[in-house]
């Protein structure tokens, strides 16, 4: 996973609440067996007309936001399906940071697993950052993860909260599995204990 430390980039404003993961990546594009290549289908129904041509009114089709690396939305971003294809599609498009007043739980988790930083900020601050974003490439936002601040184009800093474990994993670009396997002995012990306490738990075998 790519490390996330600091990012200075164009931000795109998508002032909608309840942007679901079907909207981020519709089910018909989930038939891949890879993590990459989904960027061209990100926000498919908003980005393209039914005939496949681009919708020029959609922010991610406009310059400079075609190159946005930060996305700002309203409440409950990423609700619905658990598909990790949603953060994969965002990442493949180039998004490394999403900012919203609130997130759906599974999407929030999935972002961290892919080196995308989700930042939760109050609605009025999100609206202010959207105003910055609308100024385009002259108004880059900077996200400084070690210091936990978003720096606005005028230099003002907005602090944000993040779970220390997740911050560490993002900054170091660490793999969760490797970390958990450091505790493998504890998992062995747990399994022995459960085999003793609840021996009736069946295992599955299908011929």
């Amino acid at each position: 996973m790519e490390k996330f430390t600091s990012l200075s980039a164009v931000a795109a404003a998508l002032p909608e609440a309840n942007i679901d993961t079907d909207k981020i990546i519709p089910a018909r594009f989930l038939k891949t067996t890879k993590r990459t290549g989904l960027g061209k289908h990100a926000f498919d129904s908003m980005r393209y007309h039914p005939d496949g041509t681009e919708n020029p009114d959609f922010v991610l089709n406009q310059l400079p936001w075609r190159h946005a690396e930060i996305l700002i939305t309203h409440d409950n971003l990423g609700c619905g399906s658990s598909r990790e294809h949603a953060p994969w599609a965002l990442l493949d498009f180039g998004i490394r940071c999403v900012i919203a007043p609130s997130f759906a739980d599974i999407f929030f988790n999935n972002c961290f697993k892919n080196g995308i930083l989700p930042i939760c900020l109050p609605r009025e601050l999100c609206d202010a950052l959207m105003e910055d974003a609308r100024m385009g490439s002259n108004a880059r936002l900077t996200v400084d993860l070690p210091r936990q601040v978003v720096i606005r184009p005028d230099g003002k800093e907005i602090p944000f909260e993040i779970d220390p474990f997740r911050k560490h994993m993002l900054i170091e670009g660490l793999d969760d599995i490797g970390q958990t396997l450091l505790h493998e002995k504890r998992i062995d012990t747990y399994e022995e204990q459960v085999a003793h306490d609840r021996p009736w738990v069946p295992t599955i075998s299908i011929d």
């Binding site: 658990s82 598909r83 599974i106 988790n109 697993k113 599995i177 958990t180 493998e184 998992i187």
Partner: peptide, 15 residues
């Protein structure tokens, strides 16, 4: 429900 990275985590660690 979990994402695919977590699916891999469960496969590898059962946790």
């Amino acid at each position: 429900g979990i994402g695919t990275s977590e699916v891999e985590h469960v496969m590898a660690t059962q946790t």
